[in-house]
Design a protein around this nucleic acid. Structure first.
Lengths: 135, 135
DNA sequence: ACTATCTTTGTAAATATTTTAAATTTATAT
DNA sequence: ATATAAATTTAAAATATTTACAAAGATAGT
């Protein structure tokens, strides 16, 4: 919990009880959770927590660059504390999102274009995970 | 309209009036429209059209491989009739989605992994378009 | 302790999507 | 043609997700 406190400061985020709790969860559950998953995980030990706070908190984290919002899941917003360049895989059957680390750095280069000012890239893969494949 | 008819058949989709109208719109408005945009565009000339039909139709098109669903927009599902390998850019300010065609083919290769059965890739870029940049 | 600012909360509203069941249309077999 | 079955469309209701907002609470600086 102390760690999350320091961690937030590094991103110039004022650490409140709620923010530290959310960040603590993110740092220890690297499952690209949805708002609802975070809320469900924390509310038992933090009964007054509001879902709006979770929304606000994640918006702030994204704005400050502490987490990345993923555009891989059409249904829900998902978040990743690992802000290093890496890709994601989403299983169309179970909906779980996994990291894909072993991609070439060139995959994350910003292509040249004079039409837009590009400032981020997302590389997403879709298919079926081994578990859902009955494997 | 005839064209959309033939086009649907190529993907083994039985062409109904509604399906042809939706496909006709997709083929002539390559703006990666949302369900609502499609519905709003067609309902004036097709007053009985139901939004549920638009949902059903797009689901079918995706299933049959006639269009691709994009996960680039967290707010709404977006669809692309261009099923060739290309990337997308979304302006964080106006929300419009544009094609990025001049990417290396290697960007769309399926990486090797024994953890998942990957069957599609999505390469998405985010930033600000020239119009929103006041340029 | 006082005040201004920031944060959290709960409710309600807005938006998006899915489900369901009935109605309509289309296809098939007699 | 007509009856029947199958497929498609529709509207309404149910769910789910996200945002807006205003009140309450906490924090920091003077």
């Amino acid at each position: 919990m102390l760690e999350s406190h320091q961690y937030l400061r590094r991103f110039l985020i004022k650490p409140s009880v709620q923010r530290s709790a959310v960040m603590h969860f993110m740092l220890n559950n690297r499952t690209h959770p949805t708002i609802d998953e975070i809320y469900m995980a924390l509310s038992p030990t933090m009964p007054t927590l509001s879902k709006t706070t979770v929304y606000n908190t994640l918006d702030l984290f994204v704005e400050k660059g502490a987490v990345r919002a993923l555009a891989i899941d059409e249904k829900n917003a998902r978040f990743d504390v690992d802000i290093s360049a890496h890709g994601h895989f989403m299983c169309k059957s179970c909906g779980k999102v996994h990291d894909i680390f072993d991609l070439k750095p060139s995959m994350f280069q910003i292509p040249y274009t004079d039409k837009f000012k590009i400032d981020s890239v997302e590389v997403s893969y879709f298919g079926t995970c081994n578990f859902c494949q009955g494997n």
